[in-house]
Structures are given as structure tokens and as C-alpha cells.
Design a binder for these strands. Sequence first.
DNA 1: AGGATTTCTTAAAGCGCTTTAAAGCGTGCT
DNA 2: AGCACGCTTTAAAGCGCTTTAAGAAATCCT
Lengths: 353, 353
Amino acid sequence: MDGTELGRQARPRLEDVAAEVGLSPASVSLVLRGAAGPSAATRERVLEAAGRLGYRPDRAASLLARRRSRLIGVMLDIRSDYHGELVEDVHEAAEQHGYDLVLSTITRSRDERRAVETLLDSRCEALLLLGPDAPAAWLAELDRQLPVVVVGRSIGSPGVDIVRAADDQGVSLSVDHLVGLGHAQIAYVDGGAGEIAAARRDGYRRAMLRHGLRDRIRVIPGDHTEEAGIRAGMRVAAVLTGHAPTPTAVVTFNDRVAVGLLDALSRAGVAVPGDISVVGYDDSPLSRLAHVGLTTVSQNSPALIEHAVTAIVERLDGGRTTHTEIVLPPGLVVRTTTAPPPPSPDVGHPPGG
Amino acid sequence: MDGTELGRQARPRLEDVAAEVGLSPASVSLVLRGAAGPSAATRERVLEAAGRLGYRPDRAASLLARRRSRLIGVMLDIRSDYHGELVEDVHEAAEQHGYDLVLSTITRSRDERRAVETLLDSRCEALLLLGPDAPAAWLAELDRQLPVVVVGRSIGSPGVDIVRAADDQGVSLSVDHLVGLGHAQIAYVDGGAGEIAAARRDGYRRAMLRHGLRDRIRVIPGDHTEEAGIRAGMRVAAVLTGHAPTPTAVVTFNDRVAVGLLDALSRAGVAVPGDISVVGYDDSPLSRLAHVGLTTVSQNSPALIEHAVTAIVERLDGGRTTHTEIVLPPGLVVRTTTAPPPPSPDVGHPPGG
DNA sequence: AGGATTTCTTAAAGCGCTTTAAAGCGTGCT
DNA sequence: AGCACGCTTTAAAGCGCTTTAAGAAATCCT
């Protein structure tokens, strides 16, 4: 009465295929991996038999025996849409270089350390970390064990490879765009703590200064969620109906915040872009919806990932021993939430209310 | 000048730890796995040395040597928020039963077949498939190889284990709730093709019939995206300002659709729930936002997952050889997008009829 | 033909860990 | 003493695959 009585039959092993064609396991292994050696006739026979038996190599055994695993460990936060998109690109890029992926996600009960340990246990040769929060020192220490590339986060004194978009520059683009449309009262909804948030905030500040709008700088506290956008939106809407200096445009930390903001504004009867222009950041699928049409900053993530994977391959196969930091310029995607400011200059009152 | 000069030192092996404490690898293995045998003193020495050396067992080797892998393969679509949430729960549930996870996602260039193959190659003992689209026959065939449990999709003639929520019942709850509030003109935004969409649509139809609202049945075509909600919202808003029979409530296929709908309605100046009540489905994080406050149906996914993992464990360790289908009742989460209908201004028949 | 090449095939030694049967070793018992 | 008995520890045989050096076979030369 044990579990094997279920009719499940053991999966065929390399040896079974070898026996089937009357060759040695070595030859079969060679054929199956496309290595040089076996003759065309042998190849054919082996392939046929393997197919007929439904043979699939055991990855654990193969990993163990091979000198290299050709595995790249990817740490991500599965709750993030953005990471999901990135992983798709990583898959493709890795495949092109002959690497496979092993994924490990952080969850509420699984911190970065544990996620990375899982990765290491699976013998991966390099680590691709999507937006890690871990201290730089630990990352550098990891990098002493195997190549580590950090995507999306900027780190003071590297010790790892870094691939990221120029966040400050992205926000700059937004501000430039708005100024070009004639805006001056441009507020910014902040992304909270974190290096990315800091970089974007900085980009905003600097762009404002550059345009001589020092006293129009206005940072509304927030975080990375719709909730923050909603709060900011309600605040802005209240101000609109009040008398304080009114923003005619709002730049947000990311698209999620922007979407929350848009929602709150629309419910408060504030027209976008009629009364207020809004710019997001990320070019997320949501922002692309025709009805939303959010003007936003695109990080060009396929390129980002391509660089990240290339960085890994360079260190693994190219013999590079130095660290590199690649900063990609973001691009502005202008859609329908930005327009010139309303004619009424200073104290604006809501139209339809 | 080879790659090893980088100062990376080989990771310590079991044997190294053994040498360090002057014991055999066997003893160390025993200690590290918490198996019975070694004395307390030995345990301590080994643990200390292992810690000092930073030893981590090689998973591939361990997998290969062990009879069982204690691995559950999870196939998911990383683009889906919902799957992301589920994976968190799977992690926890699996851990409690002493299993670990191996993840494999489908992407645009990686279909379910490939994703599953990756999983099989890693020696997992069972498969947990989140909302697979694959034909039932293939799933059944897989199940002959190893236990398969399908989450969230209903399948005609199983051949696999199934764990899902009663989708029709969920929509029924929504309709009941609305009827209880006095609504009669209840429209439904459809989720397109697919078995889940069919079940929910059915639930709507049947609930309407049950309440004697046969001629109020109105299914607005759509799919599973915000876009569909937006289109539906614009349609409903147009009707409101026109003269056709007006819905006073809209039930949607899922929260994403509902959010799109809410957005379109609010931009059209339609008040929710003042003019129209809206009900979603999924109890997604978005619906929980205070400002959105979407009334929605909760699938109770932690319980869903708990059952799914239990089903696997039963077959793996419990010796169950039959297939099971577990259907969990969903629950309604009433928030702020539902209220009694506005005092009927138009030709609507009074409720209850 | 004989030897030198080249081509194809395989034996055998692992990869790092688990597992089982058996070996040590103090005990207490008769 | 002699012995059976727990309690610890270990030798050794794999897990299924890769890889390398060497063997066998076929091909080429002069």
C-alpha cells in the first residue's frame, strides 16, 4: 500500500536511453547536449529514442555534474507589477546568452536575505537583484562571492554592478515639459523614503531651480501607492477651492500615485488637464489606458534589463573584474494629462464644482 | 589568468565542515538536517563549525541524493497581481508542511507547457497551477506523472485536483445584496471568454431570475481589464443622460473592471453610490483603498491556497489516490460603492416586482 | 601495407550530499 | 567475565548526469 502503486512510472534516466540504443551513457549525454563528437547517425538514433521514451534530463543531477550551472538568480518582489514585466525581459535576455533563470521572491514573511539564500543554494552563478533594499555593505559582500547586479537602485559606493535609469533626469524632463507648456506652479508628490524617491525629489528641486522657480517648489509628502495620490489629490482639490497658491501641475513619484491623484481630482470635480496637469513616472500599463492617458516617464526597461544581463555575462564569460554603473536616460511619454495651464492666473476657482 | 583569480573562494562543502570538527560527513549531514542520532555535544560542535565556515548545503546535490525533493512546482503568470498574492500564501502553507517551492512563470514567449517542463526538470513532486488555460486532457496526463492541483479554474471532467471558489455564488451574493438595497435595474459587465467568466455570468443570470428580474437582465460585454470597465462606464453614463432604461447598479466581472468603471463614471459626473451602485469581484488591494471603498466579493484566497497545498500533501504523504474538487464559498465585502437606488425618477417599475 | 591521423565511442572518476548497514563503545545484567 | 543492549559514529554505496583521458575504428598518407 505504498505511494508507488499509483501507476506512476519512474522517469527514464540517461542510462535507459543509452540501453535503448545500445550505446554508452556518455554518448547519449554528448548528443543530448549537442556537444561535438557523436556521428550524425548516432545523433539521430539517440534523439529518436530519447523522444520516444519521453526523456528529460534531471536538472539537479546535471547541475551537480556540470562545472557550471548557467543559472542566473533573480530576486524580485512578486507583488510589484513592474518587477513582473522586468522578469519577462530578463527571461528573454538570459536565454539569448544561454543562461536560465531561477526566481526567488520576497514576501511578507521572507526578506531579501532569505530570498537570496534560496538563490545561492540553487548554485546560480550570478545574482540579478530587482530594486533591493538591503544595505550596500551586504550587497558588496555578496559580490565577493559571485557577480551581483543591482537594477534600479543607485548605491553610493558600489561594490556591485548597477544598472538604473537616471531618475532625477526623468523628473527633470517632466518639469521641463510642463514649463514649456507655460506652467510655473508645479508641485511634486513625494515617494517617501528610499534612494529612488530621493533621486526623483532631487530631480524636481533642481529642475525648478534651473527654471528660476525656487519659490514655487512644493513637495507634497507621500509614498509609492495610490493612497498617497488620493491624499495628495484631495489636498490639491481643497486648495483649489481655497485661496492658497494653487498648483497648475503636479508631478508624481510614480504612476500609481498619479492614478490615485487623478481619481481624487476627478471626484472633486477638478478637470485634468483643464485645471491641472498631471505627470506620472514608470509608463505602467495603467498609464497607457486610452481613457487615463497619463503623461509619464518611461524607464525603457527592456534596455535596462538587456544591460543588466550583459553586465552579468561580461563578468561571467568576459572576464571583467571591475564594477560598472550604467545609467540610462529615461524618456517622456506625452499623453493627455498635460496641457497649458488655465488662463486664470493666480487664485483659481473650480469651474463646475 | 583564468576566472578563478577573482578571489572568490570555493564555497565550503559538507566535507570541509566534517574535517573542521574531526567527524565524518555522515554525522555532519545528520546534524544539519536535524536527524536523530548525533549526541547533543556533537550537534553543538557541528553547528558551530558550520556557522563559522558559512556552510550552506548545495541544493542540487542534496536534491539528487535525497529520495524526495520536497519541492512543489508552482506555475503562475507573473503579470497578475492576484497570482502574486497567492504565491505568498503558497509559500507559507508549503513551509508549514515542510515543502519548498519552485516557481515558474509564463511570459509572452513562454507558454504553460514550457513553464511546466521547467518545473518538472527541477524534480518537484507535485504541481500547483494557478489558473491554467491548458486543455483538460493535458492536465490529466500530467497528473498521471505527479499530483496536480489546479487553482481557480473549474474543469469539466477533472483528472486532477481542483480548488476554486464558487464563482456563480459570488455574483449571486452581489445581486442579492443589491436587491436587498432596493435595486432592480442591475447590469453586469462581462469578463469575456473563459470558464471563470462563464461561471460568474451564469451566477448573475440565475440570481436575476431567482429575484424575478428576468427582463432586467443586461450583460454588457467586456473582459478582465480596466479598459473594459472604462468602456462600460462610458456606455452607462451615456445611457444615464439619455432615455433608455437605466441601470441603478452594476456588477462587474472583477475589481479591475470595476475600477475602470468607477473612473469613467466619476469623470462623467455620475455619483457612486448616489446615482449608481457598483460591485467588484476579487477584493483586490485596490478595492480596499479607503477612497475607492469598492464593495466586492472576496475569494478568501488564503483558505483557497491552504486547501490546495493540503490537497497536495494528502496525495504525497497521505496516500490519497482519488481526485478531489474543493469549492469554497466566497464572501461579500460591503464597502461604500453600494447604497439604495436614487428615488426612481424614470419609468422604472417599483422594486420587488 | 604500415604507420600516422582523424573520428567516434566509452570507461571511469567524480559533482556534494543522503542513507543504510554495520562497527564501536560504554552499560548494566547474569 | 561474558554478553546482550542501547547509543553514537562511520564506511560505503549510491542519486543521475558530465567530462576527460584513453581505447577502438575508420581514414588517410607515402
